[in-house]
Amino acid sequence: MFKSMYNWIDERLDITPMWRDVADHEVPEHVNPAHHFSAFVYCFGGLTFFITVIQILSGMFLTMYYTPDIINAYASVDYLSHKVAFGVIVRGMHHWGASLVIVMMFLHTLRVFFTGSYKAPREMNWVVGMMIFGVMLGLGFTGYLLPWDNKAYFATQVGIKIAASVPFIGDYIKTLLQGGEVVGAVTLTRFFAIHVFFLPAVLLALLAGHFFMIRKQGISGPL
C-alpha cells in the first residue's frame, strides 16, 4: 500500500530524484567509526544536529506552559517543573541540551579546524558554520532570561550592559534588546520572541545551507 501511495505522489511530483539527492550517497571509510574508532570525531557535527532537534522539540513542548510576562513567567516555569507530568524531564532536557549543544558544536568546530577541513573549496561552509555558532550563543543568551529568576535577571542585566558598551551603536543595541529603561516586561517579551521565532528561523535557514553545501561538496578527504 505504501508503495502505491508513494507511486501516486511520485507520478505527480517526481519526488524520487529529490529523495535520491538527500539520501543516496556513500560514506567513505575514513569518517566511519566502525572502521577506525578515532573517526568518532566526525560524529560531533551530527550529534550537534541531533541535540538541536531535541532542543526544538523540547522547546515546543515548553511553550505549551510557559508564559512570557513578568508576573507569570517564573510561576509558569515553577509549575511546569513541579506539577506538570514529565515537565521536569522536558525542561531538564532543554536546560542541559542547551549546554550540550554548545559543547558539541565547539568540538565539531575544533575537529573541522584541526583537520583543516575548512580549506578550499569549503570556505563558505566554514563561514556559515561560524554564523550558526553565533546564533547558538544568541539562543543561549536569550533563553537564559526566560525562567525570570534572579540568576536570569541579573545575568541579562550584565549582558545588556556589555552590549551597550559597543561604540556608536551600543545604545541602539541596548534599546533593541531591552525595550525600555530597565530590564523588565518588554525585555522579557522581546527575548521570548527572539528566542522562539527570530533566531530559530535564522538557525534553520543556516542549517539548510550548511547541509546543502556538505552534500554538494562531499566530506573532505582523509588526511
Binding site: I70, Y74, A75, V77, D78, S81, V88, I89, R91, G92, M93, H94, H95, W96, A98, S99, I102, L137, G140, F141, Y144, P147, W148, D149, N150, K151, A152, Y153, F154, A155, Q157, V158, G159, V182, V183, G184
Partner: peptide
C-alpha cells in the same frame, strides 16, 4: 536530566542588591 533537575532560583527581584550576577558557563 534525571540525576540533575534544571535549577530554578527565586523570582527576579530588581531591588535585590546582594545577588552576584553570573552568566551561563560558556560566557
Amino acid at each position: 536530566v534525571m540525576s540533575e533537575p534544571a535549577p530554578l532560583g527565586y523570582p527576579a527581584d530588581p531591588t535585590n542588591t546582594a545577588f552576584i550576577p553570573m552568566p551561563d558557563w560558556y560566557f
